[in-house]
């Protein structure tokens, strides 16, 4: 599985995501700077990492979404390359228009940093096949702007098309319908606020995030 991780000024989960890609696939990911306009050839997956790109100036993810490399990411996504946006990466993908809706300030105003219970709402997405349908998993969140909002029509469409991949099983940030992660229409782009890359090693407190990467890998091994 050939992977790349985009690095923005202010990214802070880029190396964690690179470790996850390396651990699961056995291949070294390419680290790609936001100012570059080209991605390496032949990528299977692109990771848009968490952090505070551009200091969250204007809106979380707003500046990063307009950086040169994101045009290449959008082109790759349109060609069917898998894209995973985690935390700030999710905010960037919505700001870039690759996913619908917006991530707003947490309803409780506080930064939330803890393990949360998630339900696998759809285990048929590219990113969730290694989970059981409806399984409850524990994955950390660490965000201030994780409150997912979209208009009712968009929310209904996401639900109707099985595009809600992950849902909070507890009150976390006020997200509409407890949405924690969604996929795009063609199913190759996921955005999620929780950090699966921080839950791949038992020494770090849990491994429930690992199967998300296993799911992706299985697609590229059998293909």
């Amino acid at each position: 599985m050939k992977s790349a991780v985009i690095v923005f000024p202010g990214s802070n989960c880029d190396r964690d995501l690179a470790v996850a890609f390396r651990e699961i696939s056995g291949q070294e990911p390419a680290m790609v700077w936001h100012g570059d306009s080209k991605l390496p050839d032949g990528l299977d997956i692109i990771g848009v990492p968490g952090g505070f790109s551009y200091g969250d100036y204007l809106r979380s993810g707003a500046m990063a979404a307009r950086s040169p490399i994101m045009r290449a990411v959008a082109d790759a996504a349109a060609r069917g390359v898998a894209v995973i946006g985690i935390c700030n990466g999710f905010q960037i993908l919505t700001e870039a228009g690759l996913l619908p809706g917006a991530l707003m300030r947490n309803a409780g105003i506080n930064f939330v940093c803890r393990n949360v219970q998630l339900g696998v709402a759809n285990n048929q997405t590219l990113f969730t096949t290694a989970y059981e349908a409806g399984e409850a998993i524990s994955v950390p969140v660490a965000h201030h702007d994780g409150n997912y909002q979209a208009d009712t029509e968009t929310l209904d469409r996401l639900e109707g098309e099985g595009r809600v991949a992950l849902r909070y099983l507890e009150t976390v940030n006020g997200s509409a319908r407890n949405i924690a992660g969604i996929v795009n229409e063609s199913g190759n782009v996921i955005g999620m606020m929780p950090h699966p890359e921080r839950a791949i090693d038992a020494r770090h407190g849990g491994t429930d995030g690992r199967r998300l990467f296993d799911s992706i890998l299985s697609r590229f091994v059998t293909a």
């Binding site: 204007l58 809106r59 707003a62 307009r66 619908p100 809706g101 917006a102 707003m104 979209a150």
Partner: peptide, 9 residues
Amino acid sequence: RKLLANTVI
């Protein structure tokens, strides 16, 4: 439309 406002919200 392109940057200063996010017209979703």
